[in-house]
């Protein structure tokens, strides 16, 4: 075939072959250009994931564990403490994401029309995007702990008799302090994205809806919301994944029991008993798996919502 081709350069069959090889070359180039990124992802992320997965199955030659088994998974799933940690972590991630999304949409709607001092308000709104989570956690401690500012102000104002009567908002079993911190931090993150969509879409779609007989609420519910929903979903998926797997905030603001999953996993990992390592890894795997699963389910649900 190859020998024949030059003899008949004008024959059609030689053309597709050339296109194919061009396509291959282009793929190669893209591959080469992407290689550094792929290497980093594979080594750091996949490598870590695979190592963690192997260790969670009890494979840890360094300390003489050479067998594969599901002991670690069995032991954590039968542990009541783990189950409660899991439920707590889901509660933290889900509640924070939902509250932050709703408030973010509301603030974006408020920030959309032109008004005096809009630039300043928008600056204040997005300011805490730059503040680290840790600073927010310290802020929540200062404000809402039993000896915090709000508690003392409430005492001073005579709303409660002593700071000790202030409801537990930090180190509490409902993780209210953690959720406050996440909501505070994530509202501008989601809000800025929603606002950008609102401004680029404009108000004409809502005008159409109003003109066709929708009242304000119907226009919001059936037109504005579906238009911004893809942005809300992408942003809140990131928020959900982050809040499900983040360690420092529940570590700083969480109750001693139950602990959030990442805290529990970290404590098992740093346990003096090396035999607890497989369990720590099994927990980490569960966190990774659940985050991925939740995100998938959430995206499916939101898509269905958008369609209706």
């Amino acid at each position: 075939m190859n020998e024949k081709a030059p003899a008949n350069p004008s024959r059609l069959p030689s053309l597709p072959r050339m296109r194919l090889s061009e396509k291959g070359a282009r793929r190669m180039t893209i591959g080469v250009l992407l290689a550094p990124v792929i290497v980093v992802i594979l080594l750091l992320f996949m490598g870590g994931l695979i190592t963690g997965f192997l260790r969670s199955l009890g494979y840890f030659p360094l300390i003489g564990l050479n067998d594969f088994n599901f002991d670690a998974y069995l032991s954590i799933f039968t542990d009541n403490g783990f189950i409660r940690s899991f439920v707590l972590t889901f509660h933290i991630a889900f509640t924070s994401t939902v509250i932050a999304s709703i408030l973010a949409i509301a603030s974006a709607m408020l920030l959309r029309p032109a008004f005096r001092g809009k630039r300043f308000v928008q600056f204040i709104f997005s300011l805490n995007l730059t503040i680290p989570h840790l600073v927010g956690a310290v802020g929540v401690l200062y404000l809402f702990s039993g000896s915090g500012l709000v508690s003392r102000l409430a005492t001073g104002a005579g709303l409660i008799d002593a700071p000790a009567e202030f409801p537990a908002l930090v180190f509490d079993p409902w993780a209210i302090g953690i959720i406050i911190q996440y909501v505070w931090k994530e509202i501008p993150f989601i809000g800025v994205i929603v606002l950008a969509i609102l401004l680029s879409v404009g108000e004409d779609y809502e005008s159409v809806a109003r003109s066709l007989g929708a009242n304000r609420w119907q226009a919001f519910r059936h037109v504005t919301l579906p238009l911004v929903m893809p942005g809300v979903v992408s942003a809140s998926v990131i928020v959900f994944a982050f809040t499900f797997g983040a360690f420092e905030i529940p570590w700083l603001l969480g109750a001693t029991f139950p602990k959030a999953l990442p805290v529990l996993a970290f404590e098992s990992y740093t346990d003096v008993d090396l035999a607890a390592r497989p369990q720590a890894m099994a927990m980490a795997m569960v966190i990774a798996f659940m985050s991925s699963l939740m995100i998938l389910a959430y995206m499916k649900l939101s898509r269905r919502y958008i369609r209706s």
Partner: peptide, 9 residues
């Protein structure tokens, strides 16, 4: 209100 006018644009 626009939705009650019966004028559609």
């Amino acid at each position: 209100a626009p939705e009650d006018r019966g004028a559609v644009m």
